[in-house]
Design a protein around this nucleic acid. Structure first.
Length: 290
DNA sequence: CACCACCCCTGGACGC
DNA sequence: TGCGTCCAGGGGTGGT
């Protein structure tokens, strides 16, 4: 709870903070752990994991190319290059992309798995202590769009009530489980699922297909506004983070329910409830959310 | 097919 | 103070 899990707002803030990369050419790459590159099925046995680890090809990972664009969809970040290649970055739970000023000392703290050196002697490092994140190389943007991003729903920041209604359709799942499904909308994680449901006044246990059209409309708007506000609030924190020392952000301020189980509801004062829903800790107000 | 339990991983919190 | 235990969660996979 101290360090915000990267969901859509954090990845968007990160994307914006990485604009100095645009126009830079990748000179070289240092890979400390190849199992971070295109991790497929996570094997329990480290030897088996290493064996199925991808082609150890630095050049597939943007070496020699010039970075032209940073694109985000949901929690995914794509780094696009002038020769068409596309790198898909997913931060998992603890992943970070750290931009280092030219000739600045290397990032500290360990767990740095890849480091790209750029033509102005700045560097980009991928750090991920828990290693739930990863990097996927694609020869073209189309290849990326047709593989890893193909199963993603629309970006949650622009989620419409029509699309939400359509994807909830006949599903018997809880609305909480549906919101966490990246195929329904891309970018919502545990924090913003709970925050959006609170804002919409909808109980997370509700069967998704039983929501009324009005509730779906309210929920889609709540998802959009919650994420948009988080981007606004999160931007500066992430910029600090990228700037230098990896100081953690203070994202917890502003959360109405996430991490507040047992505390009074900010709206009505009732004690907030907590339970496991869809294998995730879920917090809600049983009075405000119906 | 839809859904769900489990697993990967490490660091921080907490109890004794 | 130190050590053991638990918990956090995105998403892939395999089972029901």
């Amino acid at each position: 709870m101290l360090l915000a899990v990267p969901e859509l707002p954090e990845v968007e803030s990160l994307r914006r903070s990485l604009t100095p990369l645009i126009g830079r050419r990748v000179v070289s790459l240092d890979v400390a752990r190849w199992d971070i590159v295109a991790p497929t099925s996570r094997q329990r046995d480290p030897a088996a994991r290493a064996a199925q680890s991808p082609q150890r090809n630095h050049h597939s990972l943007l070496v020699g190319a010039r970075i032209t664009e940073l694109r985000r969809h949901g929690k995914h970040l794509a780094i696009l290059a002038d020769d068409g290649r596309a790198l898909d970055v997913h931060l998992g739970m603890t992943g970070q992309l750290l931009l280092r000023a030219p000739d600045a000392p290397p990032a500290t703290g360990g767990h740095i798995h890849l480091t790209w050196t750029l033509d102005d002697r700045s560097a980009l490092a991928f750090r991920d202590p828990r290693r739930f994140g990863g990097i996927w190389a694609h020869p073209t943007l189309d290849a990326l769009l047709q593989s890893r991003w193909a199963t993603l729903g629309p970006d949650a920041l622009t989620l419409t009530a029509d699309h939400l209604a359509q994807s909830l359709g006949a599903t018997a799942r809880s609305i909480k489980a549906a919101l966490l499904d990246q195929g329904v909308a891309a970018g919502i994680g545990n924090i913003y699922a709970d925050e959006s449901l609170f804002r919409a006044g909808i109980r997370p246990t509700r069967v998704a297909r039983r929501l009324t059209a009005d509730q779906i409309h309210t929920l889609a708007a709540a998802v959009r506004s919650t994420l948009a506000q988080a981007i606004e609030a999160g931007g500066s924190t992430l910029r600090d983070f990228v700037r230098a020392d990896g100081a953690p952000g203070a994202y917890q301020t502003g959360h109405a329910v996430y991490g507040r189980a047992g505390l009074p509801c900010t709206s009505c004062g009732s004690v907030l409830k907590s339970a496991q829903i869809a294998q995730r800790t879920t917090v809600w107000c049983s009075r405000c959310q119906r």
